[in-house]
């Protein structure tokens, strides 16, 4: 039986590894961090849209399925630094703090995922300059009882509970100025979910979402959007947040209410930036080491988007999940299973 190398220990990589192991293959899973679970664990995602189900309910069983399977060898804190050979025999060098080892694999699955967009580039939003301008992943950590604030929503500047909160959509997405003209696919639903969570935690607070379009295409997302408006009185304003300044020690945002055709200024206590999705360092590294094609934005390009979505430009190297482009957790798991099936059927032939 051939061994499969899976690069990346996020949801996609974990699912692919456990599915392959379940079919009897030996799997080596390489993860650069010293924990499994990828961005979900790194940013302590608290609840998942649209059911507001704890993220742990989903990620823990996926991690457990890998850790408890004796066919899977997990290399934490490791990186694949060199790959030689062709399908179905690749030689990969895996490096960790202790040293390097070389192993032979029949196939390679790249599931290196994404990283949250760093909004410091959008200097007009004041992220990094104003303490109370935070990203959605920071809010996720805040809402999590295991996070730095023990589940309390607090302003970073003075630790007070914010009364008025604005959420900016499309930060680093649908934006040519930062080179990311694509949609992040998850910002709308995550912001709506966070708005509901904030309203549940502090019913007195006012939550405003500044959006361009609400793209609620996923399972139950549109219903969640309706719930946010009807049951939680979250205010959705059509107009993209344009600028943040400090006025009398309070954050002041500028936007246009595009439905009413009027520019507005709005004083709030805290601003959450729905930072988009960018190709991570891991994905860019993997593309370099493996010599596989990327698209214009650094994500990995499938051989054929429709017909072979999980095959890279090189035979024997497979790609799956958010390293191909923005994707939600639900679909990452689907991708993990899909790539496992493709690898298994190709190795058999």
């Amino acid at each position: 039986m051939k061994t499969v190398l899976v690069i990346g220990g996020g949801v996609t990589g974990l699912k692919a590894a456990s599915e392959l192991a379940g079919m009897g293959y030996n799997v080596s899973l390489v993860e650069k961090e010293d924990y499994l679970g990828g961005q979900v664990v790194k940013h302590k995602y608290y609840k998942l849209a649209p059911d507001l189900r704890p993220a742990g309910d989903v990620i823990d069983p996926v991690i457990k399925a890998v850790e408890s399977n004796s066919n899977i060898k997990v290399h934490k804190h490791s990186r694949v630094v060199a790959v030689s050979g062709n399908a179905p025999e690749f030689k990969a060098k895996i490096k960790n703090s202790k040293g390097e080892s070389e192993e032979t694999f029949g196939a390679i699955v790249v599931a290196t995922g994404f990283e949250h967009f760093d909004p410091i580039v959008k200097q007009e939003y004041g992220y990094g300059r104003f303490k109370d301008v935070v990203t959605n992943s920071e809010v996720e950590e805040m809402l999590n009882p295991n996070g730095p604030t023990k589940g309390e929503l607090k302003r970073p500047s003075d630790g007070k509970v914010p009364k008025k909160i604005a959420i900016f959509q499309c930060v680093g997405s649908r934006d040519k100025q930062v080179g990311n003209p694509y949609c992040c696919r998850v910002g709308c639903v995550v912001s709506t979910k966070q708005a509901i969570e904030i309203k549940e935690k502090c019913p007195d607070s006012e939550v405003y979402v500044y959006y361009m379009d609400m793209r609620m295409f996923g399972r139950g997302w549109e219903e969640l959007y309706g719930k946010a408006m009807e049951d939680y009185e979250v205010i959705f304003t059509r107009g993209r947040g344009a600028e943040v300044t400090l006025k009398n020690q309070q954050l002041s945002l500028r936007a246009e209410e595009t439905v009413m055709n009027r520019p507005i200024q709005h004083s709030v206590d805290m601003i959450i930036l729905a930072a988009g999705i960018a190709a991570g360092d891991g994905t860019i590294d993997a593309a370099k080491v493996l010599g596989i094609k990327q698209n214009d934005y650094g994500f990995l390009a499938p051989k054929d988007d429709f017909l072979s979505p999980n095959e890279s430009s090189k035979a024997g190297i497979y790609i799956a999940g958010a390293d191909k482009g923005p994707l939600d957790i639900e679909n990452c798991i689907v991708e993990g299973a899909a790539v496992a099936a493709k690898v298994a059927s190709n190795l058999k032939n």
């Binding site: 361009m212 059509r238 107009g239 600028e243 500028r254 936007a255 595009t258 055709n261 520019p263």
Partner: peptide
């Protein structure tokens, strides 16, 4: 045009006159 209103929000003329770059 995405009709996002970023231009209008930043426009000094739109703040005071009957003018809108988005329009």
């Amino acid at each position: 045009c995405l009709n996002c209103g970023t231009c209008v929000a930043n426009c000094p003329a739109a703040a005071f006159y009957d003018y809108s770059p988005r329009e």
